[in-house]
Amino acid sequence: MKEITEVLQRVAARLFNEGLEMFIGYESGSGLAKARPFFAAAQEETAALVFNPFCVHNLAKYLVRFPKAKIAVVVKGCDSGAVERLVRERNLDRTKITVIGVPCGGMLAREKVMAELPQDAEITTVTDRRDAFVLQTSKDERVLDKKAYLLEKCLTCSQNNPVGVDLMLGKEAPPVGEPGKDPFARLKEISALAPPARAAFWDRLMKRCLRCYACREVCPACSCTECCFEQAVPGWQKGATWLSKAITLSDNYHYHLIRAFHAAGRCTGCGECERVCPVRIPLMLLNKKLAGDVEELFGPAPPDAPSALYTYSAGDKDEFS
């Protein structure tokens, strides 16, 4: 991944020559097999930029924080849809943004990699060999088969090449998803459960939610400047909110279901909500369920049309009339 990192740094440096004010990419993180979002505000900072299979974060939402700046952002295939969505919903001024696409060979699940590596090793180089990543460490070389070490979402990925970008770094990447692996397999299993068993499945997970709101804060579809769950309810006593701050099963459900509905037909499937959840609630099951429902009710979304929740047609299904 050395080449792509070098190209990235060169491109970023050049953009600063052309008047760029902020470059959002990745730098190495504080632990082994870790990267993190990085904000270069000047040309000399671009040397810290990296790209490797630990760049899991979707950086699109950070763009909203810089409404006036000339800005560039690095996107993978699963991130590019979020930029497009934010632009289409008029949260971003596309003319100010340079979208830099990186064809993606999949992202490694850190937990699995860490279990493999000796604790005091350092990763010196990472090479993408199509079916495997080769990690050269200070101690030895590890060949990590993608089928076994990629993030779950990557194994069913069909969008690893970014779309709608201004600059594409590198050649188109071959598909990373395992052919024939159904992204909806788990959802189908859960949907097939009898209602009491399905309720028990979700109760157990929802009980666990801490309401830390990491899933909301990271989600590019959660683009409201004030979330409905922070709003005071008009006309009620001061301080009353739509959602109790108490952690109860029903309040947790309330939060997750409303959030999922607000993202229905708008979720671009980056899976960040699930990645950041400290108690591992499989939130993409909810998002996938609603994506399926929206498609069933309103048909497949044409690529340039606003999402189902943003439009109204007299022909929409109306189950209440």
Binding site: R36, P37, F38, F39, Y62, R65, L210, R211, C212, Y213, A214, R216, E217, V218, V276, P278
Partner: peptide, 8 residues
């Protein structure tokens, strides 16, 4: 800049 503002 990179902080999400979540409560984790």
């Amino acid at each position: 800049r990179r902080c999400l503002g979540c409560g984790v």
